[in-house]
Simulated assay, not measured.
Amino acid sequence: MLLRVIEQFLREFKMRPTTFGRRCARDPRLVFDLRLGRQPGDRIRRRVEHFMNTYRRSISQ
C-alpha cells in the first residue's frame, strides 16, 4: 500500500524516484527497493508520509 501511495505521489508531482528517496529518507534507492519487495519499518513509513504531507502543503501555498 505504501508503494502505491508513493507511485501516485511521484506521478502527481513529476518527481524522480531517486529524488524522492533522497529527500524523505536520505536513501536514493528507497523506491527501487520497495518495488523489489523491501518492507519498510515504521520509522521509514512515518518519514515518507511526513515528507509527502509537508511537500503537498508547501506546493499548495
Rank of each mutant, 00 (worst) to 15 (best):
7 E>N: 10
5 V>P: 01
18 T>Q: 14
26 R>H: 11
59 I>S: 00
21 G>E: 03
57 R>S: 14
58 S>R: 15
20 F>A: 01
14 K>W: 02
22 R>G: 02
57 R>Q: 15
3 L>A: 01
39 Q>L: 12
34 L>N: 01
11 R>P: 00
27 D>W: 01
27 D>T: 00
20 F>I: 05
8 Q>P: 00
42 D>T: 08
31 V>D: 00
11 R>G: 03
55 Y>K: 08
45 R>Y: 03
50 H>L: 12
43 R>Y: 11
36 L>K: 15
44 I>Y: 07
32 F>N: 13
27 D>R: 01
12 E>D: 12
24 C>S: 08
28 P>Q: 05
36 L>H: 14
21 G>K: 05
25 A>F: 04
56 R>A: 15
43 R>V: 13
30 L>V: 07
20 F>M: 06
19 T>S: 13
33 D>V: 04
51 F>H: 09
60 S>T: 07
40 P>F: 06
53 N>Q: 13
51 F>W: 06
29 R>V: 10
39 Q>M: 10
37 G>R: 06
1 M>V: 04
44 I>W: 03
13 F>I: 00
60 S>Y: 03
4 R>C: 07
60 S>N: 10
2 L>S: 03
18 T>G: 02
48 V>T: 09
15 M>F: 00
30 L>K: 04
21 G>Y: 03
11 R>S: 09
15 M>R: 00
26 R>N: 15
54 T>M: 13
54 T>A: 14
41 G>W: 05
37 G>I: 05
14 K>Q: 14
51 F>Y: 15
19 T>G: 03
5 V>E: 14
23 R>H: 12
32 F>K: 14
44 I>K: 06
9 F>I: 06
3 L>C: 06
32 F>A: 15
34 L>K: 02
4 R>V: 08
28 P>D: 04
45 R>V: 11
25 A>P: 00
4 R>E: 13
48 V>F: 06
38 R>Y: 11
32 F>M: 10
17 P>D: 08
59 I>E: 02
52 M>R: 02
2 L>M: 09
19 T>F: 07
12 E>N: 08
56 R>I: 07
60 S>H: 03
11 R>C: 06
11 R>W: 06
56 R>M: 15
8 Q>Y: 07
19 T>N: 06
10 L>K: 02
29 R>S: 11
3 L>Q: 06
58 S>L: 14
27 D>Q: 02
41 G>K: 04
38 R>T: 05
61 Q>K: 05
44 I>P: 05
59 I>F: 05
24 C>Y: 02
38 R>M: 09
37 G>L: 08
50 H>T: 12
38 R>A: 09
9 F>R: 02
47 R>Y: 08
1 M>P: 08
4 R>A: 13
4 R>K: 13
19 T>P: 03
54 T>D: 15
4 R>L: 11
16 R>D: 15
39 Q>D: 12
12 E>Q: 11
57 R>A: 15
43 R>K: 11
10 L>D: 05
61 Q>A: 07
47 R>T: 09
7 E>M: 12
51 F>E: 08
53 N>M: 13
27 D>H: 01
16 R>W: 08
47 R>V: 02
45 R>L: 15
16 R>P: 04
48 V>S: 10
31 V>Q: 01
26 R>C: 07
29 R>T: 12
27 D>I: 01
42 D>W: 06
17 P>F: 03
39 Q>T: 14
24 C>A: 05
4 R>Y: 10
36 L>M: 12
